[in-house]
C-alpha cells in the first residue's frame, strides 16, 4: 500500500507542524536567560517562583478565572434554555434561530468586539468588569447551546411524551428525563466555554477598561518585550491546565465533531 505510506508520512509531518511550536514554547519556560534566545542557555526553575510571586500575574489570573466562571454560568443558563426551545420549534423558525444563534462565533471576533464597544459607548457606559463578562457570555452561550442542541437532536420526542403521559409536568420531565440525558453535554459545553473565555483576547481588548485578564497581561508583556521569562512560565501553565478540561470535555461528549468551538 504505497499510497497509505504517503498519507501517513504527510500526517506525521502535519502533526509535527502542530506540535513543534507547542513543545518549543514549553521548553522555553526552563530557560535561564532573561531574554529569549535559541539554543537555550542554561536551565533554571526560579522563573516559576518569580512568576508566582508577581502580583500583576496573580491579579490577572484571578480576574480571568472570575470572568470565565461568571460567563460560563450565564452560558449554561442561556444556552440550555435556547437549545430546549429550538428543538421544540418548527423547522422554518428553527432555521432562523439556529442561523442567528451561531453568529457570535461565525462572525469575526473584531466585529463582536467593535460592536460591543460602540454599543457601550452609545449608551455612555464605562468599560468595566461587567462589560468583559457580558462580552464573553455572548460567545460562551453559543458553545453550550451547540453542545446541548446536538444532544437533544438525538433524543426522541417520544421520551418526553411518555413522561407527560405518565403524569409529569414540564418541570418534572425536565428534571427526571431531559436533564439526566443532556447533563454531560451541558458539562462538556461548560468546560469548553470556560476554556474559551479564559483564553479570549480579541473581544476582551474592546470590552475591558483598566482591568487586565491573563491573556491581556500576556499580550501587553509580549508587545512591550517586558517580563518575557514570566510570559514563558504563564504560557506553560496555561497549556498544561487547558489540556485537562479539553480532554475531559471530549470524553463527556464522546463525539468527534462537536468539540469544534
Amino acid at each position: 500500500m504505497r499510497s497509505n505510506v504517503i498519507i501517513w508520512t504527510a500526517v506525521a509531518a502535519i502533526f509535527g507542524f502542530l506540535f513543534i511550536p507547542v513543545i518549543i514554547i514549553l521548553v522555553y519556560a526552563f530557560s535561564a536567560a532573561p531574554i529569549p534566545a535559541w539554543p537555550l542557555h542554561g536551565f533554571a526553575l526560579h522563573w516559576f517562583a518569580d512568576t508566582w510571586n508577581d502580583d500583576d500575574v496573580r491579579e490577572a489570573l484571578l480576574l480571568s478565572v472570575e470572568v470565565a466562571v461568571l460567563a460560563t454560568v450565564m452560558a449554561i443558563l442561556l444556552g440550555t434554555l435556547a437549545a430546549l426551545a429550538v428543538v421544540k420549534m418548527r423547522s422554518a423558525s428553527r432555521e432562523v434561530v439556529s442561523f442567528v444563534a451561531v453568529l457570535p462565533i461565525a462572525l469575526p471576533g473584531i466585529l463582536t468586539g467593535m460592536a460591543l464597544a460602540s454599543y457601550f459607548a452609545s449608551w455612555g457606559m464605562n468599560l468595566s468588569y461587567w462589560t468583559i463578562v457580558a462580552g464573553h457570555a455572548t460567545f460562551c452561550t453559543v458553545i453550550v447551546y451547540n453542545n446541548v442542541v446536538a444532544r437533544l437532536r438525538r433524543m426522541p420526542r417520544s421520551l418526553t411524551e411518555a413522561s407527560a403521559d405518565l403524569g409529569a409536568d414540564a418541570f418534572r420531565t425536565f428534571r427526571l428525563v431531559q436533564l439526566p440525558m443532556m447533563g454531560s453535554a451541558i458539562g462538556a459545553g461548560a468546560l469548553l466555554a470556560f476554556a474559551l473565555s479564559f483564553d479570549e483576547v480579541i473581544v476582551t481588548t474592546f470590552t475591558a477598561g483598566a482591568q487586565n485578564t491573563l491573556p491581556l497581561w500576556i499580550f501587553g508583556a509580549i508587545r512591550l518585550g517586558q517580563k518575557l521569562p514570566e510570559v514563558n512560565v504563564v504560557v506553560f501553565g496555561i497549556i498544561i491546565f487547558t489540556a485537562v478540561p479539553v480532554l475531559l470535555a471530549q470524553r463527556l461528549i464522546g463525539d468527534s465533531g462537536r468539540v469544534a468551538r
Binding site: F19, P21, D199
Partner: peptide
C-alpha cells in the same frame, strides 16, 4: 492531538 493545540492558549502559539 488535534484538540489540544485547538484549545491551548492562542497567544502562546503566536508567541512560539
Amino acid at each position: 492531538a488535534v484538540l489540544i493545540p485547538l484549545w491551548s492558549s492562542y497567544l502562546a502559539r503566536v508567541y512560539a
